[in-house]
Amino acid sequence: MEQKFEGTPKSEIRIDGPKLLRSEVTNDWGSLLRWVITQNGKEVNVHNARPMLNYEPKLSTKGSHEAVLQMWKYVDYKKDAQGEFTNSKFVEVSNKITFNI
């Protein structure tokens, strides 16, 4: 029996001082949930978001950053020769916020 995943996950995120805050995820698939912080489109920080509803990133890069929550979307377990999934992937499940360091 292949795993079924119900609904589309969604969470709201915001920033409060140095902390990123997230709401509980609705329609939570239960797979890996992570904070992804980018600068100029490039990932500068990735952190597991499951343990807590807040996260205080330690960023070494100055300037404007963007944060979003991503969840692992399992489609199947197929992988390429390098061992990376080919069809399953991370998808964004929250709004994006921009903040300055």
């Binding site: 292949e2 795993q3 239960g30 949930l33 499951r50 199947d76 377990y77 399953s88």
Partner: peptide, 29 residues
């Protein structure tokens, strides 16, 4: 066989579960 599960042989075929399956799906689930 042929699905993400705990049987982590990483054989590149029908038993190709790896650390990525554990990290992204199995352990969180």
């Amino acid at each position: 066989f042929n699905l993400s599960c705990w049987d982590m042989h990483a054989d590149g075929g029908g038993l190709n579960n790896t650390y990525l399956d554990y990290e992204r799906l199995l352990c969180p689930q």
